[in-house]
């Protein structure tokens, strides 16, 4: 089936099979490899994207059901070499190791800070509990979220 999506601000068209997820279409058809495929069942958050502003796992969105929607992926955040403040904070805080979970965390953190610019530790932990990281033990990720909050994430 032919899909029309608004991805990162541009109209995109792609072919999708009936059973395919938005994640598959973003990665394999549109070349947006930033959203990662780690569990395929919404248990790890590595494929987090925004759909009409809501944080979702792209692996749990049927591609066909995303027709006509506004999709924002991790690729939407940096402006060329200029990192988004959340991305900068993850780099500086040492929150990146293998980095496979990182794009999902970046998108989820940006969504969190949009809704709650100064989250407490507890609020961060709850908001990011759907994103699994196997490398860092989360300590530096928590720090990165605080850092980006302190810098005003929209800067």
């Amino acid at each position: 089936m032919r899909l029309r999506l608004q991805v990162n601000g541009s109209q995109r068209e792609a072919e999708a099979r009936e059973h395919e997820s938005l994640l598959t279409v973003l990665r394999e058809r549109l070349g947006l490899w930033g959203s990662k495929n780690a569990c395929e069942q919404g248990e790890c958050g590595s494929c987090s994207v925004l759909i009409d502003g809501d944080l979702v796992c792209a692996c749990l969105v049927l591609a066909g059901a995303a027709q006509g929607r506004d999709v924002r992926t991790v690729e939407d955040l940096a402006a060329g070499e200029h990192l988004h403040p959340v991305q900068r904070a993850f780099v500086d805080a040492g929150a990146v190791q293998c980095g496979f979970c990182t794009p999902g965390f970046i998108v989820a953190t940006a969504a969190l800070l949009r809704d709650n610019p100064e989250p407490s530790d507890a609020e961060i932990r709850e908001a990011l509990s759907g994103n699994i990281c196997r490398c860092t033990g989360y300590g530096k990720i928590l720090e990165a979220v605080h850092r980006s909050a302190a810098q005003g994430y929209t800067s």
Binding site: H19, E40, L60, L62, G64
Partner: peptide, 17 residues
């Protein structure tokens, strides 16, 4: 439903969202 689709357990002919 998406878990079943992703794991190849279901291939419904039509899906109505």
């Amino acid at each position: 439903l998406m878990v079943d689709l992703n794991f190849g357990r279901k291939r419904p002919e039509h899906v109505v969202a």
